[in-house]
Nucleic acid binder design. Structure first.
Lengths: 214, 214
DNA sequence: AACAAAATAGTACGACCGTTCGGATCTGTC
DNA sequence: GACAGATCCGAACGGTCGTACTATTTTGTT
């Protein structure tokens, strides 16, 4: 079966082009979180990577395609480092907690010097229609659905009270996360993490089924 | 006393320059909330106002000065339409509530088609040092202090419980507001306002002195 | 080793950027 | 109504932007 598994997995060493393409996107992602998606410039990107503008540009047919590819990579990474690991955690409140904690960790990941790109894009693109905005909205919607879904499971497991509005729960989580970014990145508040953790604990408290304590 | 009051008030009809300057800033404020502070362009601004680029530019010595002036105007307007009216409301929980409600209303004010400029600037400038960022931080800090101060008063009035962490309260309010902007502007969620109101009510519930209900 | 294809570089383009400067036009004051 | 200063315009500067084209080099396959 060795040959079959090889054919099925088909790792197929990435070609040179795919390699540099990946490298470009990785660097662009870090850059975009810091200087924004509009502020991101092909010239600057090429300079950083010691490439020619045109050589870099050839990998993407337009700047918009580049932006979309960056967001695609960011979305995949987020699923990989936040959602997937949380699915390995027991259903119910533990998983909800894992989602939230990994989300904050992702937001502070060293590979994202400017924080979660979707957070930044949320406010940068909220008034600028187009496919980039659409992609961000879709991704955020998926994320909120993931949160709400995890809460729903916690309700079914009897961890959270039955009457809980799971969409409201997801909304409130988003608020805590946004306030966390606000406090840590803009205000440079050293207590930012403690504040977010405290807010989340209070939120959980309120969601638990009656008579249920940690 | 008529003459004295005249001298004291000193309305002094605004000169032509001051008029257009004000008009420029008013329009620039609306524009900046939509397309961002970096995206804001002197050429575009001049075109909108049917002025020459250089004529407009002459009112501000640089683009940075223009950005600062825009934010100064926004800050003044926010104090005028959010903070000041709330100070006319009875101390304690009513005033806290007034602050929050007027804040949401300000965020949706028709003169701010892109929403509160400080919200947008929070995420746009969080990684770009300079006087503009500093100004935003200072303004946001003042706002959070106002919120925390109002909560402190509510504690002293016996409306809120004595052990309340007022800074955490302000932080949580900020989260609710950010989530509101996120839901209404980006996600276009028609329930955005209801979600924010619900979150705020729950927050208040938790803050009240024991045995105190609405 | 040869050759087609893929990847990168070079150069140029029109558009717009923030800014400067000298001159035209307008305002307010005597 | 003249004069000074405020206000505004037009043209131009050096730069950078995204993108298009054509070469040149590198890669992968036979």
């Amino acid at each position: 079966m060795a040959t079959a598994s090889k054919a099925a997995a088909r790792p197929r060493a990435p070609s040179k082009g795919e390699q540099t393409r990946e490298a470009i996107l990785a660097h662009a992602l870090g850059l975009a979180t810091r200087i924004g998606f509009e502020g991101l410039t092909i010239g600057r990107l090429a300079e950083d990577l010691r490439m020619s503008k045109s050589g870099l540009f050839a990998h993407f047919r337009s700047k918009e395609a580049l932006q979309l590819d960056i967001l695609r990579m960011a979305g995949a990474r987020m699923v990989e480092s936040v959602v997937k690991p949380a699915l390995a955690v027991p259903r119910g409140e533990p998983r909800v907690r894992a989602l939230f904690e990994r989300w904050l960790a992702w937001e502070q990941s060293p590979s994202l010097p400017g924080g979660c790109p979707f957070m930044a894009a949320s406010f940068e693109l909220d008034d600028r229609p187009g496919p980039v905005r659409d992609f961000v909205v879709q991704n955020l919607r998926d994320w909120m659905d993931t949160l709400a879904g995890a809460a729903r499971i916690a309700v079914n497991e009897g961890h959270f009270r039955a009457a809980l509005d799971c969409e409201q729960f997801a909304h409130d989580c988003q608020g805590i996360g946004l306030a966390f970014v606000h406090a840590s990145r803009l205000m440079r508040d050293p207590k930012a993490y403690a504040r977010a953790a405290s807010a989340f604990e209070t939120l959980l408290q309120r969601c638990r089924a009656p008579g249920r304590r940690r």
